[in-house]
Design a protein around this nucleic acid. Structure first.
Lengths: 171, 171
DNA sequence: GAGCAATATTTCAAATGTCAAAGGTTTACG
DNA sequence: CGTAAACCTTTGACATTTGAAATATTGCTC
């Protein structure tokens, strides 16, 4: 934080890179995490208050909305980054509410495919429109150019992380 | 996505801003969310495998490590962005493991203060060092200048979100 | 075509998470 | 004082989450 008044700019950068810069990644991570939590909580609150839905449910329905023919539960698991066991329960509850239905294709009886019902589509459409608006509102003070830059640079972070995982790899 | 071959650069930007740019905030959010999930999952896996701890426990201990005199549960709740009820259970489990202890100050018997035990401090120190290294590894492919820029710009996002919350406000 | 590996989902135990209501304590006010 | 308001934590109901084990089905191999 304190800049030496005798150093050149280059030297400052070097010194900063060697000493202060040490925990930059940690600081970035903590800020990413807290910001994401903040936004998640706000979205969760609004989904609950205005639609009686939860964020994971919204997430799951968003995937199904893109694939009108439905998705296998394993595929849903990958796309929502949620474990298999979790998808089972989520789909169960959504089915109880009449928003999603499950069917087993003739070809392979190991498989369960989940689809949105008409009711589910209607609800999702309404939620998605509101959801997009909430995000625009929340990020209203951020310059659109910064939004675009963040999108690109966070993509870089994601790639780097994917290349340094101990376990499985994702897109 | 398609750029008109007849437009000037300025016009392109305007058109893009008016049409394509509409869902930029949504795209950014989805990317932030998936990246954060990815990193969280990796950290959780490593904390579990190498230290037998969970991420929320690590989070809570990190807050206590900064405040050697301990923190009231309500303060812990704010700092970890977790509800009061959740903190109760978290601290209970950590106390069972001998990592944290609870005491009620004489002055105000409504209050419970949680502190790290010696065992808790030792474990946390080891975890924190590893944790920092994991993050450096995962972000190894990201230019340090980009890391710094992301930190700053995500700070801007956080501020904007904080200014547009429907409920309570945070730092 | 019997056995076995691979695939896909479910189940289970334990932890985390929210929200709302209930329990104590302290403070303030008449 | 004595009661009401404010404050702090816990409790309870329910949803989400992970990780591992159990189930069920398919496909392959000999």
């Amino acid at each position: 934080m304190a800049e030496s008044e005798s150093g050149t700019v280059d030297l400052e950068i070097i010194v900063q890179g060697a000493q202060e810069g040490k925990k930059q990644e940690l600081r970035l991570w903590l800020r990413m995490l807290s910001t994401t939590k903040l936004i998640s909580q706000e979205i969760r609150r609004r989904l609950r208050n205005e639609f009686g839905a939860t964020l994971p449910q919204f997430d799951l329905m968003a995937q199904l909305y893109r694939e009108r023919d439905g998705l296998r539960l394993g595929e849903l698991s990958k796309r929502t980054m949620v474990t298999n066991g979790n998808v089972t329960g989520l789909v169960e509850r959504l089915e109880t509410d009449g928003l999603v239905l499950r069917e087993t294709p003739d070809g392979d009886r190991r498989v369960t495919v989940a689809k949105l019902t008409n009711k589910g589509e209607e609800l999702f459409t309404a939620m998605a429109a509101a959801h997009e608006g909430w995000l625009r509102d929340m990020m209203a003070d951020v310059d659109p150019a910064i939004v675009a830059e963040l999108w690109k640079d966070i993509g870089g972070v994601k790639s780097s992380v994917n290349n340094h995982l101990s376990g499985a790899a994702f897109d």
